[in-house]
Design a protein around this nucleic acid. Sequence first.
DNA 1: GTCTATAGATCGATAGAC
DNA 2: GTCTATCGATCTATAGAC
Lengths: 209, 209
Amino acid sequence: MPRGAAGADAPPLPKRDAILEAAAKIFMDQGFGPASMDEVARLAGVSKATIYSHFDSKQALFGAIITGRCTAMIPLIEAAALGDQPPADALRTIGRQFLDLLMSQGPLALYRVVLSEAGRFPELGRTFYESGPSLVANALADYLARQHELGVLETPRPRVSAEQFFGMVLGQIHVRLMLGISDAAPDPAERARLVELAVGTFLNGVARR
Amino acid sequence: MPRGAAGADAPPLPKRDAILEAAAKIFMDQGFGPASMDEVARLAGVSKATIYSHFDSKQALFGAIITGRCTAMIPLIEAAALGDQPPADALRTIGRQFLDLLMSQGPLALYRVVLSEAGRFPELGRTFYESGPSLVANALADYLARQHELGVLETPRPRVSAEQFFGMVLGQIHVRLMLGISDAAPDPAERARLVELAVGTFLNGVARR
DNA sequence: GTCTATAGATCGATAGAC
DNA sequence: GTCTATCGATCTATAGAC
């Protein structure tokens, strides 16, 4: 793997970048098994031998692509700083961001591919989980722990409560989307109503009395 | 497909049954793509030509297997009759059953396979959803609608509330299991605590005041 | 580094004998 | 119905020329 980390901007290895871009598209569209190196070569405009001069194997190329996509999710999630907003505002904000993120094409396709290959590439499952679901749950858990200490909310197990809140917001939407059920995606207005209902029920449920 | 529906008991076609059993094991273990008809034939103790005399194609065999497994989930779910139990009991019961079902090997492997092939076999996604997640959500939604009419709970959108309750119970457990995260499965005592916490928060949240 | 050409293996599906 | 044997297509990976 020459040139481990290139400069900030930099198109220093045009063919290598072309391979990465083509492989990303094909792996994300088709998954590991059905994707063929011939097709990657054709889309990248290089020969198959060139691919194998940059990457050891199909598995290595796949791993590089998917790991990159997983870590690319991290900034999307870390942007959600809850600070010391009132609980209703904080939950509404992060709930809405969470729902929008989970319904967007990129993370959805990435989750699909990682799931399909979690057996063959166990470390990818952990990388995905820690770059996505775990990170967002930790962000909310930190907020809930603070509100618990402040005496505002009754959340003695903040990480569990955080997961339960996100589970509430999501309901079965993600399952329907993953299964390809038609009309599975609620429009923005309905999404707002779902988040509002979840926030209301959750806050009622964990309010200090 | 000879002998559309056999008699009640009946091992009338031993080779056909051997094929179905072997194919079920291999498809559930490996998924559609990686599974090979040679391996099915070997495990079933027949030749490949015999398989093709009973089933038109690999796709047809796969569809028969998966559809059968999906509809086999139905009795497991319809057993959950909530009747007119008090809300805390009803939610505790169905929440615990739901969590145990989602964590068991059979449905977990089936969900994994259906997800992987939802692109190739769109109708399987719908069959799975309607035999499993939708059925269990409807069962709880019916109960919540009744309690709403009785003035016990404030659940004007019972189907949404049902999905939100199940999402709460599950948290990120299913995601971790599907991704192969080690130590993803809570033991029975922790499972009981998680359900208890979800029931408490949810009922507090939707209680009529 | 990059190409063309191909080795070597696997797989779905079928032909033809019994 | 069931078998053996095989076709034809596809795939990963590499050898060898430039």
